[in-house]
Amino acid sequence: MSVRLISALSFVVFAPLIGGLISGIDRRITARMQGRFGPPVLQPFYDVYKLLQKENVIARVRQNAYIDFYLLFVIFSGMLLFAGQDLLLFIFSLTLASVFFILAAFKGSSPYSLVGAQRELLLVMGYEPMVLFAAVAFYMATGSFWVSKIIVHPVLLIKLLPGIFLGFFYILTIKLRKSPYDLSTSHHGHQELVKGLTTEFAGPSLAMIEVAHWYETVFLLAFVYLFFAATPWLGALAVVVCYFLEILIDNVFARAKWEVAVKSSWLVAAVLGFGNVAVLYLLKGF
């Protein structure tokens, strides 16, 4: 019990540090891919620290409360995952977090943030089936929804769940807000929706969104690790490779439209996700 608690608490403390560092390395590598030198690796921390000092301009009274809840639930989801709790609970909590984020954006009065929120809803709709398939498949492979059980499962899960892994990798692009699926908001300012979801947030609340994103990055990568939990070094390697591929994908694709994002992620969920579950079903013979 205490091990779990320590693990969850250390997630709360260290995840933003790791997430921020990952984001900094990401920006540096991205810059190198674009023929630039790039910012210092610690740049994301400077940004967030600066944002915290800025004035908090508010368009509507309650919008920032939603952001507080968004950050809270993102942290809570991560704690659930790191505490080895139920995978389903983690997914629901994460969805709730996105709902709060979308509500916050809907609260903003700018049309950009409204359209951004609508697109985010569609994206959530797009990736959610795949996430659920992933949870089901983990259950079928290991016989438990509990992360603590999954992580000690002796079999290398990637062998059983290659389709699920690929499908999850596909929606990871959406979750990490990488091109081609950075529809609702993007790291780079040059987008038709300006900053989409985050258009209406300034200063400290923007910093909170950024920090929430760091937390998300860390537990999404932890989720990737779950597939390789039986061989830790392979897991670590997979996390690094996955993230590098995401950066690469970010740099070699144009931004897609939401129709493509939703359709393709459903197709991926149906073919890879459902296909993998079906094969497991036949193998295990439930």
């Binding site: 674009q34 630039r36 081609p180 950075d182 993007s186 780079h188 740099n251 694709f253 931004r255």
Partner: peptide, 16 residues
């Protein structure tokens, strides 16, 4: 144009 369709690295290389 590359920037408009969200292809940032292409934007950078064109301008390079």
């Amino acid at each position: 144009a590359a920037d408009a369709f969200g292809f940032e690295s292409l934007f950078m290389h064109s301008w390079r």
